Structures are given as structure tokens and as C-alpha cells.
Amino acid sequence: MTKAIHEKTSSQSGAPEKALEVTQLAQTASVAAWLDLIEESTRFVTERWEQDVKTQQALFACRTPQDLLKLQSDYCQKAIEQYTDQATRMSGKMSGAATQTMGDMSATSARKYDDVPL
């Protein structure tokens, strides 16, 4: 009987380390997906900021009210298109990151038919 107890505890002793290893791998993949979101957001904000500065410089160069109106109209139309595209892109990336995170977490916590010791 002592031998059976010893075998049971020695076979289970590796389980926490294995679970920790799988969890760390899942977290690494999930973190990478969320870091991709942050990178994409930063890229977009930087590009928009650069365009805003260029537009501000162009505003100072306007000589007539018609030039100003055209510049503002073009700026607003372009900004609406870019923000719409970015929202669509970010929505897709967030959905993918959430799906990956959930898949990673279910893979680490899913039980197998043979994981219950007898």
C-alpha cells in the first residue's frame, strides 16, 4: 500500500510544473497578440499626429477662405476614412486576440479523459 501511495504522489508531482509551463506558454502567445494591438494603436496615433501637424502648417499657408474651406473639408474626409479603417482593423485584431487568449486558456485548463488518477 505504501508503494501505491508513493507511486501516486510521484506521478502527480510533475503535474504542477507541467501546468505552469503550459500556462506560461499560453500567456506568452496571448501577450504577443495584445502587444500587437498596442503596436498598431501607437502606429496609427503617430501617423495621425504627423498628418495633423502637416495640416496645421498648410492652414497657415492658406490665403483665401476657399483654400481654408477646401483644406478643412479634405482633412475631415481623410480623417473619417482613416478612423473608420482603423476601427475596423482594431476590431478584427481585438477579436483575434480575444479568441487566441480564450483558446490558450481553455487549452491549459481543459481536462483530458485520462487525467483523473484512479
Rank of each mutant, 00 (worst) to 15 (best):
T64Y: 08
E21A: 12
M102T: 06
A61G: 02
S13R: 07
T99I: 04
T9D: 03
S91A: 14
W34Y: 10
A4N: 07
M105F: 08
A58N: 02
I80C: 08
Q24T: 08
T9M: 11
V116H: 06
S13T: 07
E50R: 15
A4M: 02
T23N: 02
K78S: 13
V22Q: 10
F44Q: 12
C76E: 15
T88L: 15
K3F: 09
E17V: 03
L59Q: 13
Q51Y: 05
T88P: 01
S109V: 11
T88E: 13
Y83N: 14
G14R: 05
D114A: 09
Q77H: 12
T99W: 03
K112V: 03
A4Y: 06
F60I: 09
A79R: 15
A110Q: 14
A29R: 13
P65M: 10
T108L: 00
C76Y: 14
Q82D: 13
T55M: 07
V31W: 07
V31R: 14
Q86N: 15
Q66F: 11
T55W: 04
T42F: 09
Y113Q: 12
L37V: 06
Q56W: 12
D114Y: 10
R111I: 11
A33D: 03
S10Q: 09
D114E: 14
I38E: 13
E81Y: 03
A32C: 02
S91G: 12
R89V: 09
S95R: 10
A97Q: 01
L68S: 10
Q66L: 13
V22P: 01
Q86V: 04
P117C: 04
S106A: 07
M1V: 08
S91Y: 11
K78G: 00
I80R: 13
S13W: 05
K18C: 01
A98H: 01
A79T: 14
E21L: 08
S41Y: 05
A61P: 04
Q72L: 12
T108W: 03
